[in-house]
Design a protein around this nucleic acid. Structure first.
Lengths: 192, 192
DNA sequence: TCAGACTATGTCAGAAGTGACATAGTCTGC
DNA sequence: GCAGACTATGTCACTTCTGACATAGTCTGA
């Protein structure tokens, strides 16, 4: 009954041993393109995974008030992870606050909605540029047996997502500008 | 302190009065492109919204063991909804199980991973065709002041998303097929 | 006439996720 | 030498979400 977060942790540990702190840091970026968790969740989940025999830890001295615990996958953990990968994902319901706002946007001031989407567009373009820079660091797709393939494939997904999202925001801004223009034009005194 | 689910309910009620049951049904499709909730959540939230004065209900006789409650927006509810629409969305962390599987895919049997993505591709293509049929029912984008604009804009987002996702799955299948071919070729006896 | 689907509202236990609080040693730069 | 950032693990209260359980009248078609 391992949760998806549990498998996310196993997937990180499959690349090498880590402390809970390391895993939390890794889940801010770049694993965070697709899964995030606070350190409070990670420590709790590591205790469950340890109890289930999927991970094991070794105590080592380090900075910090307590000794650090370096976790690694057990053979059982590796088996569980491999089996999970090819199982069809249990569909999480999609919840997208921006699309919900869009659904209700007909009620709001079009100029304020336009600004909202212009800002979102800017943010997506920024992240897209960032992902593009990261993509350049790979010299084309790694082999599917290479751990780096996982990173590259996830990055490809992120690139596609940001492009789709930016395009949609651009369309929204266009729609809202078009609807604003007539009254804006009407206010402006006529020119030859 | 209304939750996003609360605003989702307000957004549905902005289009007309509904019972909790109706809202739950609406949130399966087509609001479900971007927000879903079980009926147990909706009834609980409606009680909170009523307590907060954002919605009001009228009891009417209908089928079912209890009289039905027909909810509508109050003026305060309308104000709260309008104010919320143009506020920047509070970023929900992205959690995507399929991308997580991708990140770990280098560990698994490439043929099984290929099948996983082939199946996902099929599902996305199916949904894309469905959305395209729905788009045809609109004769172009409605005016941004029209409630149907909300539906159309959300559908546009869904279309872009499914296209991006299908393209990514197709790329994954391609990558995995390419890596499988060499050994598949090696097994097959040479042909002139 | 009777089965089964649909309408309709609600509770409850539990899982998953968030943010604050607690604690304390080490490393870096000014 | 000292401030502040970083390393490091953990608890707790709270919110959100899920799925099961509970209840019961009406409508439809075989």
């Amino acid at each position: 009954m391992t949760s998806t977060l549990g498998f996310a942790i196993l997937a990180v540990l499959a690349r090498g041993e880590r402390t809970g702190y390391d895993i939390a840091a890794a889940m801010r970026r770049p694993v965070s393109y697709f899964w995030t968790a606070g350190h409070s969740q990670i420590h709790a989940e590591l205790q469950k995974l340890t109890a289930g025999g999927l991970v094991a830890f070794e105590t080592r001295h380090g900075p910090g008030p307590q000794d650090k615990k370096v976790y690694r996958l057990t053979p059982e953990g590796g088996d569980a992870l491999r089996a999970w990968i090819t199982e069809p994902p249990r569909g999480r319901p999609e919840r997208d606050e921006l699309v919900l706002k869009t659904y209700a946007s007909w009620l709001a001031d079009p100029e304020l909605v336009r600004r909202l989407f212009a800002e979102q567009l800017r943010a997506h373009e920024e992240r897209l540029a960032e992902y593009e820079r990261e993509e350049e660091l790979f010299g084309g797709p790694p082999d599917p047996g290479d751990p780096r393939f996982g990173n590259y494939a996830a990055l490809r997904c992120g690139l596609g997502y940001e492009r789709h999202r930016a395009e949609w925001c651009r369309w929204m801004v266009g729609q809202l500008s078009a609807s604003l223009k007539p009254s804006w034009e009407a206010v402006k005194p006529s020119e030859p």
